[in-house]
Design a protein around this nucleic acid. Sequence first.
DNA 1: CAGTATCCCTGATGATACTG
DNA 2: CAGTATCATCAGGGATACTG
Lengths: 118, 118
Amino acid sequence: MPHSYTRETAAEGVESALKFIEGRWKLVILFHLFGGHVLRFSDLERAIPGISQKMLSQQLRQMEKDGMVRRIVHPTVPPKVDYCLTEWGQALCPALDALLTWGAQRETMSAAAQTEKA
Amino acid sequence: MPHSYTRETAAEGVESALKFIEGRWKLVILFHLFGGHVLRFSDLERAIPGISQKMLSQQLRQMEKDGMVRRIVHPTVPPKVDYCLTEWGQALCPALDALLTWGAQRETMSAAAQTEKA
DNA sequence: CAGTATCCCTGATGATACTG
DNA sequence: CAGTATCATCAGGGATACTG
């Protein structure tokens, strides 16, 4: 690791990074917006089965506040609101990819087949 | 991303990877074991202020079950138990580093200074 | 030393209903 | 359409006490 972190600050740093993507629906939303997609509230609602309006709204607000998502309100009737990722939001991609890769190594790298779990 | 995942399976893949490191103390424990360190239960207890025996034990058990941590029991009196990372546990390092890097980019990349939050 | 066993409490999420 | 408001639920975690 090319950083000058101590164990403690590194752990804290990762923890605070994780806070941005923790939340039952954040990753699903993220993956729908990756690639520069611009989606309306109702698009996301339809794209994500099982999510409630409350949760969709709540997670989007947090992500907006955190600076991952941009919210664009069109002052029309009926209302229209677009969502897309910020530059920083897009920048999450490599990190998630690294996580994906790590997870995929589990079967490969585990010396002995441990307990199976979902 | 060099993978052949759909949005949905990618989100699920990352979610399941995240489950392995979710837990109030997992990352702190991880960072104490990175670098091949071998620590006893009491070492970790002392190294991690604020953790209770219940939590330390619980998190270690999960990590062991998940295949990230190896638990070595020495059949002595009094008992002695060593903990270290498995190969797969060590392999988490690059992913956490990517997360750290992403988090660190927040101030740099955010167009406008958004709401400040811990 | 290295844990278990209990009890409690809070925050995150879900279900449902209502609105500018 | 794009939300907000309320209420109910539940798992994760904390505090404390006990044990092979």
